[in-house]
Structures are given as C-alpha cells and as structure tokens.
Design a binder for these strands. Structure first.
Lengths: 337, 337
DNA sequence: TTGAAAGCGATACCAA
DNA sequence: TTGGTATCGCTTTCAA
C-alpha cells in the first residue's frame, strides 16, 4: 500500500475533477454555498486519492497551527508523566497537537525556545512548578498565549492549579482529628510556589489549632530527598519525634516512609505520613499514602480551555483558577483516638 | 518588549535593506557567494528586527520539517518517562522537534495518526513495547520512516533495543554463581517482545545450567501486577518457594519485593529479586534492585541516527541494533555462598 | 454556485 | 555577487 509517488493535493484533485482549486477547498470543508452534488463528488475523489490536507500550508495562509508547546517538569516526579498523559488526551480532544518543548530541570535551550516561534505554535502550556522558565519569557515577549498548570503565574499569564490551601486544610483537619499533635513538615524546593504554599498552608492550620510551630525539615523534589529527610526524622530522640509528617509532595512522602521504616519505625503505627499530589504509584502497597489528589484531568482541561480562549483573542484577564483536590484517606496515617 | 505588530519576514527585511528577498535568504544562511559586507548588514538587520524564520514556510518549499513524532508507552512504567527525556535531549541536539503522538495504552486515535501526515513529520520514533501500533502502519503506508526503540521491529522498520539475551545471561550467571537454584520468573504482557525475550532468555540460561524449568508467574506491566505475582509467590509452601525471582521489568520487580516483604519474607535474605530496565526509582532504598540497566541515552541516540539516515534517503536495510545493558549488582539479591 | 488570481514566507533556479 | 521569478499547498477575496 505504498503511495509515496506524490501525495494528493488540492491542485491535483482539482485537475482530476476538472474544477478550480478553490472549489475543492470549499467542498472539502463543507462550505454551504457549494452544490451537494459537487461536494459529494469531490469528497469521494479525495477519499479515493487518500488526500490529507497539508497543515503547514494551511497555517501559512494565516490560520492557526493547532500546535501547542508543552514544557514539562522534572520527570523524577511521576506527577509530570501523569500530567503529560492528561495533556495529550485533552489536547487530542481539542484537535491540538503537542510539541514537547522541554523536559526537566535546567534552562530551556535557546533553540528549543526559538522553535516556539519558528513553528508558529498557537500557545504554550507550562506544567512545571519551577519558577524559572525561558519559554515563558519568550512567549511573553512575542505575544504567544501561555497558561501555567500546576503553578502560580509569573509574568502575566493565566494559570490553573490545585487549591493548595484548601487541600492542606482538609488534610490538617483530618490529622488533628486523628489525635496527632507533634508535626513535621518536609518542604520542597524553595523555587516552587506549590511547595511553599503547601508548607505554609499546612503550618497555618496547625497554628490556628493552637499547636506550636511544626518542625521544618528541608526536603526537595525526589524520593532520595524525602529519604534523607525521613532519616533525619528517624534519628530524632523518641520524645521529640513527630507523630505526623506532612511532605509537600507524594514522591517526597514515599521517601520519608521508606526511611522511617528502614530505621525500624512503623508507618502509620509510630508515625503517620501524608503527602500531596495523588500519584498512582503511592496509592497501593507498600505506601497506601494518605494524600490530597490533584484533579489532573480537570486541571489540564481548564488550562487548555483558557489557552484556546486566549488564542481565539478573547482577552481573558489573566485568570487564575484553583481547583479543589480530593482528600484520599489511606493507610499511611492513622487515628490515635 | 511586545512586538506582535507583524513579525519580520524575509520580505520585510529585503524591503528594509533595499535588496532582493533571495539575497536576504542567502545572506542569512551563509551562502558562500554573498559578499561579507552584505551578509553582515543583513545579519545585523535581522538581529535588530528580531527575525525568526518561519519553519512552516521553509518546509512547504520542499525541505524537511525537522519534526518527528513520538509514540510513548504506558507511563505507569517510569522507563518511558526516562526514555522521553532522552528523546527530547537527543532530538534537540539534532535540531529536531518532538511531536507527542500518543501516550500509553490503547490504539492511537485516527486523528492523531493523521497528524503524522498533516504536519509532514519527517519520521517517527516508536518507543513502546506493545506490538499494536496504528502509527506504525500509517507510517508504513505512507513511506514515513520509522524507528522502534525498545522493541523489535514489526512490519519493516529499523529498531534499536537492549540486548535482552546478553543481559539475561549476565544476570542469570550472577544469580547462579550466587548459589540460587530455585527460580521463578515473573512474566510481562504477552504482547511485548521484550518481555518474552527476557523471560525466554533467562529460562534458557537456567536450562543450560541443568536446572529444572523455572516457575512461571504471570505478571504484567505495573507495580500492582508485580505485587500480585509476589503475593502468589509468598503464599507458596516454603519448600517449593523460589530462592530467586526474576521479574522482566523493574516496575514489576518492585511490586514483587513489596509483596514479599508485606508477607513477612525478607529480600534478599529469604528471596533474591532481580529486574530489568534500570529505572532510577528502583536504584535506591527500599529496593536497591539488582537489574540490567538499559543504555537509554545511547539507544535513543542510535535510534535517531537511524531515523535521520533513513530520512536522508540512505536506504538503510532495516537495521536492527542491539545494545548491551549493564548489570547493576545491588542489594536485592545476595550470594548464598 | 464556481472560477481566477493574489498571497502567506521561504527557497532555488536562471539570468544578469 | 545579486535580482527576478516560479513554486510549495492552501485559503480567500473578487468576479462571473
């Protein structure tokens, strides 16, 4: 079924049908002022010839490219892979193609950022918690619409993120009700707004409940960082050891749990551990992690809607959308009471 | 720094410089037969105007689009996220852009497959172990070069994969030397050539060593599947329980370990467990998984080289490249002797 | 309802 | 060394 020999084009179809190219173009996109007979004839011809429109030529004329760029966070954290999957699915639903711009840490290379302009991408989705982002500034400088997912907006841009505050409140309330009184918070990278919000939001709830300041343990963004933090916690004298640990991300929490257990402590019997994100791998054994699950698909969907709106010229005034996460009560935390 | 107001084009630069468009085009790409003076002048102008070439128009003329499609396997397995990162990095190095075609299980939607043609992608990289692949047949039917990474070729296409056989031999030899005699193999999805090769390759070594057939436990492609398999192993009467388990992928092996431990067995003291892939998350505690690490970056690099060669018309006769993995001896296996 | 022609941005060929 | 022009595939006025 080889048909390399010159793909069919509007022109070739027009020749074959003995009509003008414009007629073919119209017929193919269901222009109302084309006779049904003509439309059917052309459609059949196109079908037979295996015609595929050239999206590039179409874009050149002045239309949209239907291409969006995607900047992805560090893949050590499975949340980004899950996010990517959601993006691909939701984008496909909107007939958008996803161009991978950058993955992981480190500044986006100039050439990659340039691609954004060169390929006339309609917009850009930035799903990274890291603050820095060359792509963002390139977009801003060139009027390319941007939407941030999973982070607060920098520069001016719309954003959709999980409601960190509400999530932390629910989680904190649950742990407090469960009888926990000595808390530790394993923090994330300081350049991530999410991490800061979550640590701060959680701490605020403890204060509101009249508890002393929680122990702050510096973490990071990986299992290893969580493990290190967990080791430090495990090394604490039993009487100062927390009875509940909140790690600002699931991947961190997994590391914490592993370290605690490696040190002979039981989770949740000796220490409760909770996270934030809702990644799949942490749901089952051996973690059964209590966490706040981010509504990934809805977040991405809203983000794309915002992007599409912005692309369409609807001057959305830099919306910032916050979606509620879902508290997932699982086996890594317990009730003392 | 807004400069939406009509981006600079070759034509606008030509007008500004008072020369022909063709001159600008040549000057910008360092055509040898353009006067240094002219080149400098135009380059400066372009710089000042913030000129960015329109890759779409360039492609339309007949050149390559520098766009390649990427079909990614199920993201439950971290190996695919790591692979994606390698692809983005290696592609960038070759000035190629990566269009995300499909992620995870399920047939690639028609619209996505169509994008392959519509956007004039130069080629396609398929990094999935699953056999089915709509993208592959679309490519084959339309003469779009394809290279498979991490799977053997179907249809005709080049491929680069890890040498499953050699890896399994090394691993098996190590475990045999360590004194293990009763083996179990946790298999993967039957539609994955890698999984079959690995299970078969490992079993062959055992036979060669004069051991009885290993216990075959059906697994899958997820931690959960591994956990289920591990649970079945743990439930075996102690005298029939294997002293070494080989899971055909790391993510499976992790599940196996978790299940064994949950059942009160110690790894590696009671049972050794080894995997295949070399994913980052399994390297550290609590798994410290002994495994065969796939040379991801080299695999992807070779894959792209093959693809680029094919695109350039060098009729490579469907190469199949096999790269050696690296045996990583870690704490999940032990030596009895 | 259909046709003809202009043009999107860049390249390449043929002249000069 | 530089200029003009055709062309890639498609859309979109403007006519007919």
């Amino acid at each position: 079924m080889q048909d390399n020999p010159a793909r069919a084009t509007i022109a070739s179809l027009a020749r074959e049908a003995g009509v003008a190219a414009s007629t073919v173009s119209r017929a193919l996109k269901g222009d109302p002022r084309i006779s049904p007979a003509m439309r059917d004839r052309i459609t059949a011809l196109a079908q037979a010839a295996g015609y595929t429109p050239n999206a590039l030529a179409r874009t050149l004329v002045g239309g949209r490219s239907q291409l969006i760029g995607l900047v992805l966070g560090p893949i050590e954290n499975p949340i980004y892979a899950e996010m990517m999957q959601a993006v691909v699915a939701e984008a496909a639903r909107r007939e958008l193609r996803v161009l991978l711009l950058h993955v992981g840490r480190g500044p986006i290379e100039d050439s990659t950022a340039a691609a954004l302009l060169q390929y006339k991408m309609d917009g850009c989705l930035i799903t990274s918690a890291e603050l820095s982002s060359r792509a963002a500034s390139v977009c801003a400088a060139n009027g390319v619409p941007v939407v941030m997912v999973n982070r607060v907006p920098r520069l001016h841009a719309s954003a959709v993120a999980c409601d960190n505050r509400a999530g932390c409140e629910e989680l904190a309330a649950h742990l407090l009700e469960g009888g926990h009184r000595r808390f530790a918070i394993v923090t994330g990278n300081p350049d991530s707004s999410n991490n800061q919000d979550r640590a701060e939001g959680f701490a605020r709830c403890l204060r509101a409940a009249g508890l002393p300041e929680p122990l702050l343990v510096p973490g990071g963004a990986s299992h290893a960082a969580g493990y290190a933090a967990g080791s430090r916690l495990a090394a604490l004298p039993p009487d100062t050891r927390p009875d509940a640990v909140f790690a600002v991300s699931d991947i961190l929490a997994m590391g914490v749990i592993d370290a605690l257990r490696a040190a002979g402590l039981r989770v949740p019997e000796d220490v409760s551990v909770a996270g934030f994100d809702g990644i799949a791998i942490a749901a089952g054994p051996p973690y059964r992690l209590t966490t706040v699950a981010q509504p990934l698909a809805p977040m991405v969907a809203r983000g794309l809607d915002l992007l599409v709106a912005d692309i369409s010229g609807a001057r959305v005034p830099d919306d910032v959308i916050s979606l509620r996460g879902t508290l997932m009560l699982r086996g890594s935390t317990r009730n003392f009471i």
